[in-house]
Every structure is written in structure tokens, then in C-alpha cells.
């Protein structure tokens, strides 16, 4: 149940300002930790600004959506929704300069597969990734625990898909709307977009689901207002109804404002990121390779089996950039 879940308790925030504050804080923390000689006033000439991080993450959310869409075997919606939640949660408490989104993206999807019991082996999984697959699987497996930890081990996600089914059943039984199944395509389209917004960090899955249903109905030139006010919320009281109406309105306006970030701008942000990112977490960097070699040397020669640390990172960049063309 969502009402008693970790999602509501720890990962549903009061408003967009709270999200912005968290993101700004961790953007600043990254800069502060670098002990860089760059003056605070000048810091965005070298480091990413909070807004640049937002644009970059928006781009990677599009990558995430495309990656899941093209995944073989076909991925259930729940896995996609859960992966989006993980990705968004991770970057509330981490900067993209610390952990590159292309690496976290794949790890989020991989962990979501496990939690949602979509059984794919790491081999099957990285077959969906372009580039050096061995390296990709090393990166994913190395980041898995980090991701779980950053999510504070709150891995159960309440997605809007089940409430949608509930609403459709309820509409079929208690509402006179003809052929409610025709709402489906509108609902799916809405929910796909909703994950490109912060709605899932701000609203209950049932509110998001209802926004999707109402949106789909209005696309079909139908009006479900009286279903909401006279049937669904008949006994709930006016104040509760007012809260719901406001939530639905906000969610729909968030979805309306979704737009892809400007290509050229993202390209420049990525170039900037290559320079300012934390090299200790960059699998292609010398410092990372050296640290891993030290880790392995420290360890024994007896170490057999599939080494998670095989560092044959022969120069291929962009391994994890999913097939977003």
C-alpha cells in the first residue's frame, strides 16, 4: 500500500522547490569537495550549474525511455517506471559530476529488472547496449551496490500502472462512459510523458493514474468530472476533493510542459562534464584504473572466476550511451 510505504515517507516531496533545493545542494557539495582553485563566483565556467545538470538529466531520461522501449525481450511497464524512480531519486542526492548519468542509467534499469522480477541475465542485459559490452557489464555490476545504498535500500516502487487498472475497472462498473478501453492509448501516452517530469517525486501513484485517465478522457472528448466528484469522492469531503483536483491539474500541467532539451546545448554540457567530472568514478580515467589495479594487487593471485574488475577498457568511450539516435 502506498499510504504506508517508504515511497511516501521518504521519497514524496512537498513541492518542486524542495527538489530544486536538494539538487542545488548536491551540485554545490560537489564543487566544495573538489577544493578547486576556481573562485565560487567563477565556478560555473568550469563546473556544471544546477540548470545544466537538469538539462543533461532530461536528455538522459529520454535515453532511458528509448533504451527501455527497444529492450529485448520486451520490458514490462513496471520495470520502466521503477527504473525512472531510481534514476530520479539517485540524482536528488548526487551530482552528475560525481556519477555520469550514462552509467547510472543502465544500473537503474538493471536493478529495476531484479526488483520487478523481470529475469534477464547480465549477458542478455548488455546485449541491448551498444559498444564494449564487457566493460558495460563491469560498470553496471560495480555500481549496483552503490545505487542500492544511495536509494537507502528503499527499492519497492509504487507505480501508477496498477491504479490505472483499478480506475478502468471502477469506471466500467460505476460509470456510464461507453467503452472505457478506448482510453488506453491516451493513458499510456500520458504515463510515458509523466516519467519525464518530477511528478513521481511529488504525487501519489493513484493521483498520477487519475490524471492520466482524465487526460485520456478529454482527448476522447469525454468528461469524467462527475465520476470524480459524485462517485469517486462522494463521501470524501470537499477539502480532499480540492486537494485531488489541484494535484491532477499540476500533474497535467507538468506533462504539458515536457520538452526535449536543445541538442546543441546538451552536447556542450557533455563536453564540459568530460572535463569536470570526478575522475575517480570515471572508468576510463587513469586514476580509476590505477585504483582498481591497486585493489586487485592488494588481493591475491588466487582470485579466479569472473573478475568484476577486468579493466580492459580499451579506449572505447560512450559504451553506455544507449541507442538514442
Amino acid at each position: 500500500m502506498f499510504s504506508t510505504s517508504s515511497q511516501r515517507k521518504f521519497w514524496t516531496f512537498s513541492d518542486e522547490n524542495e527538489l530544486a533545493r536538494l539538487r542545488e545542494k548536491h551540485n554545490y557539495f560537489f564543487y566544495a569537495r573538489q577544493n578547486s582553485h576556481i573562485d565560487e563566483q567563477q565556478r560555473f565556467t568550469y563546473f556544471l550549474s544546477p540548470d545544466e545538470e537538469r538539462q543533461l538529466l532530461k536528455q538522459y531520461e529520454l535515453h532511458l525511455k528509448e533504451f527501455c522501449k527497444r529492450f529485448t525481450p520486451p520490458m514490462p511497464k513496471g520495470v520502466v517506471g521503477t527504473a525512472f524512480h531510481y534514476f530520479k531519486r539517485f540524482y536528488l542526492y548526487n551530482s552528475t559530476m560525481d556519477y555520469h548519468p550514462k552509467e547510472i542509467l543502465a544500473t537503474c534499469v538493471y536493478l529495476a529488472c531484479k526488483v520487478e522480477e523481470f529475469n534477464v541475465s547480465i549477458g542478455q542485459f548488455v546485449a541491448n547496449i551498444k559498444g564494449d559490452r564487457e566493460k558495460a557489464s563491469d560498470i553496471i555490476l560495480n555500481n549496483e551496490l552503490l545505487l542500492m545504498q544511495q536509494l537507502n535500500y528503499h527499492l519497492t516502487i509504487h507505480n501508477p500502472f496498477r491504479p490505472v487498472e483499478g480506475f478502468l475497472i471502477d469506471i466500467k462498473t460505476r460509470c456510464s462512459l461507453a467503452n472505457p478501453e478506448r482510453l488506453r492509448s491516451g493513458i499510456d501516452e500520458f504515463l510515458e510523458k509523466v516519467f519525464l517530469t518530477d511528478a513521481c517525486l511529488l504525487y501519489a501513484p493513484s493521483q498520477i493514474a487519475l490524471a492520466a485517465v482524465l487526460h485520456a478522457a478529454s482527448k476522447e472528448q469525454e468528461n469524467l468530472d462527475s465520476y470524480v466528484t459524485d462517485i469517486l469522492f462522494r463521501d470524501a469531503g470537499r477539502d480532499k476533493l480540492a486537494i485531488l483536483i489541484e494535484a491532477v491539474r499540476k500533474i497535467r500541467s507538468l506533462v504539458k510542459m515536457v520538452e526535449a532539451p536543445a541538442r546543441e546545448r546538451v552536447r556542450l554540457i557533455e563536453k564540459k562534464l568530460d572535463k569536470c567530472r570526478n575522475q575517480e568514478n570515471n572508468p576510463d580515467s587513469e586514476i580509476y584504473k590505477r585504483r582498481m589495479r591497486e585493489l586487485l594487487d592488494e588481493d591475491d593471485v588466487l582470485h579466479v572466476g569472473s573478475s568484476r574488475m577486468s579493466l580492459d577498457t580499451s579506449g572505447v568511450t560512450q559504451v553506455l550511451s544507449p541507442s538514442a539516435s
Partner: peptide, 22 residues
Amino acid sequence: TEDGIPLSTVREIALLRQLEAY
């Protein structure tokens, strides 16, 4: 395992964390 943290462990952690919220 070669697939990383076993699926059963991941799911158990998820469940324990979820139960705790109650």
C-alpha cells in the same frame, strides 16, 4: 553471482525495507 547481487537478495531487502515503513 555473475549477475551481481542475487535477485532473491535484492527482493528481500526491498521487502524488509517496505515492511519497515508499516
